[in-house]
Design a protein around this nucleic acid. Sequence first.
DNA 1: TTGAGAATGTTGACTAAGCAACAAAGGAGC
DNA 2: GCTCCTTTGTTGCTTAGTCAACATTCTCAA
Lengths: 188, 188
Amino acid sequence: MLPNPDEKLDPRIKRTRSLILTSFESLLAEKGFESISVQDVTDKAQVNRATFYAHFPDKYALLDYSIQKMFMAEIEKRTLNVCSYSEDNLRNLILAVVEFLSRVHTGCAQPHQHFESLIEGTIKKQIFELLSYWLRKSKVPTEIPVTVATWAIYGLASHYSHMKKRPALETFVDEAYPLVAVNLEQFA
Amino acid sequence: MLPNPDEKLDPRIKRTRSLILTSFESLLAEKGFESISVQDVTDKAQVNRATFYAHFPDKYALLDYSIQKMFMAEIEKRTLNVCSYSEDNLRNLILAVVEFLSRVHTGCAQPHQHFESLIEGTIKKQIFELLSYWLRKSKVPTEIPVTVATWAIYGLASHYSHMKKRPALETFVDEAYPLVAVNLEQFA
DNA sequence: TTGAGAATGTTGACTAAGCAACAAAGGAGC
DNA sequence: GCTCCTTTGTTGCTTAGTCAACATTCTCAA
């Protein structure tokens, strides 16, 4: 997809960001996002508090960045970032989103509604960009169908991860993805 | 013993030193000391080569520093750094030196004679300081007996770790430590 | 309601780390 | 001998990180 943004940055920048990120993610596993202070993060990262603010405007920006990185890792693991639209890729994308959301819910000590709405936008933006990239060869604008598909995919994943009695993941996805595919296939 | 020197140093300094140290120790486990270049160390540590020279004159100084840290860890693990002379502590010290030397021999991909002579001085200096500390209450100078004991202890450890068919460690030490104790006990 | 303590951002002066370029010394091969 | 290449230290300039101090907002209990 897009070229990796971690090319030839100053090593100190890469190191500091990764220290902050690691610290944040481990804190997220042990307590709720709201109860994490910038001080907590920098203490554990062994980085000065002022340095944090040189990299992120506030802890919400850090959350964004963190979600972005984690989601992108999920996508890259399945090599969905270097391909084009196909039914199979779409199916895998939905699987990826579901698994990612589930992991966030179990891994982070806070499945609260507010938290989820914080990450929702970030994830949808990534899905939107990925789908646009998949349809980059299209002769006509894809904004509308990609928007529809993006929301549908996120909605499916969110729905699944909140279900009391979940069906098998494969079953669920097999049933759902054709409904999304029908809106996209004509642009591939 | 002496107050830890890692009190309130600039965090960047602590971080850099620890990165260099970790990198060096892992390289030492995979290849011989002589074949490790400063470049190798800084590459793995993700630190600039010039930064290395701001901390250490050369790789021999790094080896010293590394041996010092590792040996001190062995001593602190047994709390031998916060006590005074006793037969039992002496026995434990000998055990510590033997185990340390053995670990260096197995852990470092280079049991060469030259390498051992590089670390010998560093270790003996630590033993000397520790024994002096143990006898700090003595009314008379302890330099001579401590010197004798230091060399004897290191010699025993070196001998043991080079033996073809080693006796049980406990047996060996039980037999050996009285010979050292006899020179020290009168100063305790 | 108020007041004490904690968390947030921000600033400016200082210090460490990065970088590129250099001279010099060593090694391996021809 | 000679070259080519690697490693070693060193240097001056740039950039990132640290620190202490400050004003501001938040929170929560007295």
